[in-house]
C-alpha cells in the first residue's frame, strides 16, 4: 500500500505549518508500519497535546488524541487491557518531557510494550514558541527572549536511566534511517523511545535565525553523526544518531499474563 492508503484524507489539509518536520515523521512512521506488515485494525495510536499530537487524527488506525502530557498513561491502559494491540505514541518534546515527564519515566521503568516517538523541535509550537525542556541553553523562545537559562534534558541519558529497553535518535533529514529505526522500535518487545529531531521553522527557526526548513534540515545533517562513526570521533561535539539501547527485559503486560496463569486463570486477550 502507498502512504496515502494509511491516511484519512477526508480530514486534510493537515494543520502543520509549511516546512514543519512532523509530516516527514508521519510518512516515515507509516512506511515503518508498512514494512512490518502490521494490520490497521491492530494498531492504536495515542497522542497528547501539541503540534505533533495532531498526527493520529490523520491516520487510519484506532486513534486517541488525549490530554497534554498524558498520552503514555492512556496508552498504558489500552495496551494492558488488550496486549495484542500494537500501541504507538507520537509526542512532542514539551508534551513528553515537561508536563508528561513523570509518565515518561514510569512508562520506561515498567517496560510495557509501547513505542514512543518524540518529535523534538526544541519548542512549544502549538502555543506560539515558548521554551521547552529540550530548548538548548541560551536559545531564544517567546518565554526566553534573551535566551533560556534553563538546561535541556539529555534525552538519551534520561530514557536510559529511567529503564527504557530501546532508545534511539534520528532526524527528519535522515528519512531512510528513520524508517529503519521506527520499524525496529515498534518491533522491540518493551518500552521503545525514538527521538526524532524535527524542525520548527515558524517559531524555533525564526526566533533563533536558523533560516528556512531546508537550512534547518541541513543543520541536522551537519550537526549529527552516527554512534561510533569517524565523523563523531573527529568532531566530539556532534549529536549522535542511531540506537543507544536495545536490550531484552521482561515486558510488563507479558509478566502480568504470566501472573494470571500462575494463579491458574486465563483472560480475554
Amino acid at each position: 500500500m502507498a502512504v496515502k492508503d494509511y491516511l484519512r484524507q477526508r480530514f486534510f489539509p493537515q494543520i502543520w505549518c509549511p516546512g514543519c518536520g512532523h509530516g516527514i515523521v508521519m510518512a516515515n512512521m507509516i512506511r515503518a508500519i508498512e514494512r512490518l506488515r502490521l494490520k490497521k485494525d491492530e494498531i492504536v495510536v495515542v497522542s497528547g497535546i501539541g503540534c505533533s499530537s495532531r498526527m493520529p487524527g490523520y491516520l487510519d488506525f484506532h486513534t486517541l488524541h488525549t490530554l497534554h502530557g498524558r498520552a503514555l498513561a492512556f496508552a498504558t491502559g489500552a495496551k494492558m487491557s488488550h496486549p495484542k494491540l500494537t500501541v504507538i505514541v507520537p509526542m512532542g518534546d514539551g508534551d513528553a518531557l515537561a508536563i508528561g515527564g513523570n509518565h515518561f519515566i514510569h512508562a520506561a521503568r515498567r517496560n510495557m510494550d509501547l513505542t514512543a516517538i518524540i518529535m523534538n523541535n526544541s519548542i512549544y509550537g502549538m502555543t506560539g514558541g515558548q521554551s521547552s525542556p529540550m530548548t538548548p541553553f541560551g536559545k531564544k523562545a517567546t518565554t526566553a527572549t534573551s535566551g533560556t537559562i534553563d538546561h535541556a534534558f539529555d534525552f538519551v541519558g534520561l530514557a536510559r536511566g529511567a529503564g527504557a529497553s530501546f532508545v534511539a535518535r534520528t532526524t527528519t533529514y535522515h528519512a531512510k534511517e528513520m524508517i529503519k529505526i521506527i520499524a525496529k522500535a515498534i518491533k522491540h518487545k518493551g518500552f521503545a523511545v525514538v527521538e526524532v529531531m524535527s524542525q520548527c521553522p515558524t517559531y524555533y527557526g525564526r526566533k533563533n535565525k536558523l533560516g528556512s526548513a531546508v537550512d534547518m534540515m541541513k543543520r541536522f545533517k551537519e550537526g549529527t553523526a552516527l554512534i561510533g562513526s569517524k565523523k563523531k570521533a573527529k568532531h566530539p561535539d556532534l549529536i549522535e544518531r542511531g540506537i543507544f539501547v536495545d536490550e531484552e527485559r521482561p515486558e510488563y503486560s507479558t509478566s502480568y499474563l504470566e501472573l494470571i496463569e500462575r494463579l491458574g486463570n486465563s483472560t480475554t486477550y
Partner: peptide, 28 residues
C-alpha cells in the same frame, strides 16, 4: 489477576484516570 482481570498501580492519580479511559476504549 485471580479473575483474569487487570490491575496496575500507576505513578499518580492523573495517570490512573487516564489509564482507565484507555482501557475502557478497548471494550472493558
Amino acid at each position: 489477576p485471580g479473575t483474569g482481570g487487570k490491575f496496575i498501580q500507576m505513578e499518580d492519580e492523573i495517570a490512573s484516570m487516564c489509564a482507565i479511559i484507555g482501557a475502557s476504549l478497548t471494550g472493558f
